[in-house]
Amino acid sequence: MINNKKQKNITLSFLLMLLFCYPIFTIFNKKTFIGNIPILYIYIAVSWLVALIFLIISAEAKPFKKHQKNKNE
């Protein structure tokens, strides 16, 4: 179970890296605007928020799953 959590964390970090780095990033690196705000700015703000939500879920959701599993075994 501990390893499982470790794997989840590492997967999450890779996903976040992808979100903020080279290939996907260039999609939004354009002079397009939503309202008056550049799309790149909006993309960064939104994906940062998404990252925060993922972090909250991964840290707070069912932290004691491990113990429950043990009980069921």
């Binding site: 970090s13 960064i44 972090l55």
Partner: peptide
């Protein structure tokens, strides 16, 4: 422009590795 934010996005990504 928005380039300065990298300094704060890095720690956000790192936070997912705080546990391991």
């Amino acid at each position: 422009g928005i380039g300065f934010l990298a300094i704060y996005i890095g720690p956000t990504i790192m936070a997912s590795l705080f546990f391991p």
